[in-house]
Write a protein that binds this DNA or RNA. Structure first.
Lengths: 197, 197
DNA sequence: TTGCTATCCGGAACGTTGTTCCGTATCGTG
DNA sequence: CACGATACGGAACAACGTTCCGGATAGCAA
């Protein structure tokens, strides 16, 4: 209470340099730990990897859910930002494929988050909207480019694709071994199939 | 290890009377606590309500998941067994409606179980099969009776209905207040609508 | 009924977790 | 360079799941 919410990403005015270092280290470490052991991983594991004390974590993220939400937004930003970068470097179809794989990698690090989202914690309320708001335009642009280039059909719905891959990438047991990537390739092939029509 | 799995329900040969009492008390208490606070509720809360020590719980249910699975099977049995009872007491349509409400009540007590099922704990592996194996025939019989009586259409798929109600009854926030019941009534009305055809 | 033994019970004790607290170290500024 | 505000680290606390064991009890045999 009284503590203004700590925003992830770009440094804020008035934040001391060492504080910003701690925040960055925590976000990086938390992202790695969440990817490895899910969002229920012990806090001490995060603080150890970040090389900070427990007090430092709770100073910047008063509740555990604040850290999770911050990491989530951080990664959503990074993933969405990859879309224009890929579009500039590769041809439209290649950029689309690579970004979908990138997106699948993002989803794969979200073990346990689905449950957290339905836990009723109001800190998470804004996350689904944030998710759609950033990813749908990113994918939409990639799809448009590929369609304009004649590489894929033009009636693909971005949000449909995001949900489909979201469901593909998250559920499986630990023996994935390329399954998700193959399924994405198949989806893209499906998009290419209708290119002529 | 070496401890044979403790079966819920009917007493086994060779179990001492006091042990059976403890098992019953634990299953009853756990069912209430799970319904109230979800499957993640503290173990001490269960032992306290059962009037039993912690050691007693772990003697009969070596892992937490064993207790959850036992309660689950226990309640599946009870819910499935209600079908023929209702069928004998009420007319086919009334029996069907009442059982679906009963089933929704069962689902409503399963907060957190969905997440547990996807946790990879092998103790839970048999539960989905157990679920379908007991509920599908129970509902199927009720549907057939109602269809034969001309009260509802005859092409309803039991498993479809179970899944639909399963999804209806579980997700909402805490402000349900009869929503599930209204939706079930609506579903039954839908079944009645096609009765003539 | 009485006594014996395998079994079971209760709750204290252990290790791990999330979270709080505070003495100390550091940053930014005059 | 010195000072106040801020942030740091890790010890300390509470709550959790789980283990352990001395004492109690049920079931059986005589």
């Amino acid at each position: 209470m009284g503590d203004e919410p700590t925003l992830a990403g770009q440094p804020r005015q008035g934040v001391r340099a060492d504080a910003q270092r701690s925040i960055d280290a925590l976000l990086t470490a938390a992202a790695e730990v969440f990817a490895e052991d899910g969002v229920d991983a012990p806090v001490r594991q995060i603080t150890a990897k970040a090389g900070v004390g427990a007090g430092t974590l709770y100073r910047h993220f008063p509740q555990r859910s604040d850290l999770i939400a911050a990491v989530f937004r951080h990664e959503v930003d990074a993933c969405a930002a990859a879309a224009p970068t890929l579009a500039a470097r590769y041809d439209p179809l290649e950029a689309l494929t690579r970004w979908l794989q990138r997106f699948a990698g993002f989803i794969a690090t979200k073990r346990g988050l689905s449950a957290a989202l339905h836990s009723g914690d109001t800190t998470y309320d804004s996350l689904p909207g944030y998710f759609q708001q950033h990813f749908e335009p990113a994918l939409s642009a990639l799809l448009d480019s590929a369609a304009k280039a004649g590489a894929i059909r033009s009636d693909a719905d971005p949000w449909d694709l995001l949900r489909a891959i979201g469901n593909l990438a998250v559920p499986a047991a630990d023996d994935d071994s390329g399954h998700t990537q193959r399924m994405i390739a198949l989806l893209v092939d499906g998009l290419r199939f209708g290119a002529g029509a």
